[in-house]
Amino acid sequence: MKKVITFGEIMLRLSPPGYLRFSQADSFDVVYGGGESNVAVSLANYGIPVEFVSRIPDNDIGECAVAELRKKNVGTQFIERAGDRLGIYFLEMGAVSRGSKVVYDRAHSAIAEIKPGTIDWEEVFADAQWFHWTGITPAISQSAADVCQEAIQAANDLGITVSTDLNYRKNLWTYGKKSHEVMPDLVAGCDIILGNEEDAEKHFDIHPEGVDVSQGDTIDADAYISVCQQLMERFPRTKKVIVTLRGSLSASHNTWSGVLYDGTKLYKGPDFDITHIVDRVGGGDSFMGGLIYGLIHYGEDVQSALNFAVSASALKHTIFGDANLATVAEVEKLMGGDASGRVSR
């Protein structure tokens, strides 16, 4: 089977134990994760050969991040070992009516100083079938955006499927460019687009019609077909647009689903009522990992691919850490309607 390639930043995540606030913490739990590395872990967990491309400092903390990837069967041979520091983010886990908080400490991280021309993308893409990136990477720095553009162009030239998770992060676009100045040229080279209504609005000024997204409860999937259609009109190369549907009743209780539009038909995924969230960070990444697996594994059966993605990401909400560690069997069990959570003996 040909490889999937992902490109982006992996960070050190530091969180107070359990649901403690930053002000209560005298220790932090350590997790390594990031948008594209989380997708890579999901795919490796499903048996898909995957390589994560990045720039990570050649020090003990960088080695811990690389070791974590290797432990999860993610390929690391194309990681450039250079730079001074690994990006850090601090996460305070929310509960009930208190939302989670994230504080970034990633300025001048190794990948922020990556230079165009330093990665041999033809070598990286040898024996590859898919390339995935997110809107987080070009938000880090101009040079990271330039390298992302190099990768997309090389993948396009080689006929490799390119996917993106739009992932708008307002706190990252600080190097002098706005997302609407950078993202359109990158997304123009994508075959698959994943996002939500905020991503489409912030990056491209695209708004859903007939739905008030500020309500925060369950969402009518049909109202999002206009977002999908507008994205396809803006980016003619795109073959599929996927919108995740999250209804936030509280920090601990969300509804979860998704829709996929292929240019002619809108597919709706299953609805999940997630009443006791363990960790919602990485939910979108787990959806993307499930979607890539589903589209590769189920082929033309787009409905099954979408169902796999929604079910996989629903399970991720029960797993601590950034990455989804659910197995194919567990996802397929949930797809089949078994949400009992009974002990497996």
Results as ranks from 00 to 15, higher is better:
Lys177Gln: 12
Ala223Pro: 06
Met335Cys: 10
Thr137Pro: 09
Leu166Met: 15
Asp185Thr: 14
Ile79His: 01
Pro236Arg: 02
Val310Ser: 04
Leu194Arg: 10
Val182Pro: 06
Leu12Phe: 09
Phe125Ser: 04
Gln77Phe: 01
Arg106Ser: 11
Arg70Tyr: 00
Val124Arg: 06
Gly159Trp: 06
Ser257Phe: 06
Ala95Gln: 13
Gln24Cys: 01
Ala305Ile: 13
Ala67His: 06
Gly87Asp: 09
Asp205Asn: 15
Lys265His: 14
Leu166Tyr: 00
Val74Leu: 07
Tyr89Ser: 03
Leu194Phe: 15
Glu36Gly: 06
Asp84Gly: 09
Asp205His: 11
Arg81Leu: 14
Gly87Glu: 10
Ile48Tyr: 01
Gly75Lys: 00
Ser252Phe: 03
Lys71Gly: 13
Leu315Ser: 05
Leu12Ile: 08
Thr164Glu: 03
Val30Gly: 02
Gly135Tyr: 10
Glu123Leu: 09
Pro184Trp: 13
Arg237Glu: 09
Gly299Leu: 07
Leu166His: 05
Asp191Cys: 05
Ala107Phe: 10
Gly283Gln: 12
Gly62Pro: 02
Gly289Phe: 10
Lys115Met: 11
Leu291Val: 08
Arg70Lys: 14
Ala112Asp: 09
Glu113Trp: 04
Leu86Lys: 06
Pro138Thr: 12
Ala312Arg: 01
Arg81Thr: 11
Ser54Pro: 10
Asn171Ile: 00
Asp217Trp: 08
Gly283Cys: 11
Gln230Phe: 02
Val96Asn: 13
Leu43Met: 04
Gly87Tyr: 06
Ala44Asp: 03
Leu306Tyr: 13
Met335Tyr: 07
Asp285Leu: 00
Phe308Val: 11
Ile136Gln: 07
Ser214Pro: 01
Glu9Tyr: 12
Thr255Gln: 07
Ile140Thr: 13
Gly47Met: 06
Leu172His: 10
Pro184Ile: 13
Glu123Ile: 02
Ser100Asp: 02
Gly18Phe: 02
Val50Gly: 08
Glu201Trp: 12
Val213Gly: 02
Gly282Phe: 12
Lys240Phe: 13
Arg342Leu: 09
Val4Phe: 02
Tyr89His: 08
Lys177Leu: 11
Gly290Ala: 04
Ala126Trp: 04
Val328Gln: 05
Tyr293Asn: 03
Asn156Glu: 05
Arg85Lys: 15
Ser100Val: 03
Phe90Val: 00
Val41Glu: 04
Leu172Gly: 05
Lys333Glu: 13
Lys265Thr: 15
Leu291Pro: 08
Ile5Tyr: 08
Leu158Cys: 04
Ser304Ala: 15
Gly83Ser: 07
Asn254Ile: 14
Ser15Asn: 13
Ala65Ser: 09
Gly290Arg: 11
Ala144Arg: 04
Ile219Gln: 14
Asp338Cys: 07
Glu209Leu: 01
His132Pro: 07
Tyr32His: 10
Val102Ala: 04
Leu260Gln: 10
Lys239Cys: 01
Ser248Tyr: 02
Lys178Arg: 15
Ser340Pro: 07
Ser226Glu: 07
Arg280Ile: 10
Ser27Arg: 13
Ile114Phe: 01
Pro270Asp: 09
Ser54Gln: 11
Gly33Asp: 04
Val103Asn: 00
Pro17Tyr: 03
Lys2Leu: 05
Ala305His: 13
Asp285Lys: 05
Ile296Ala: 07
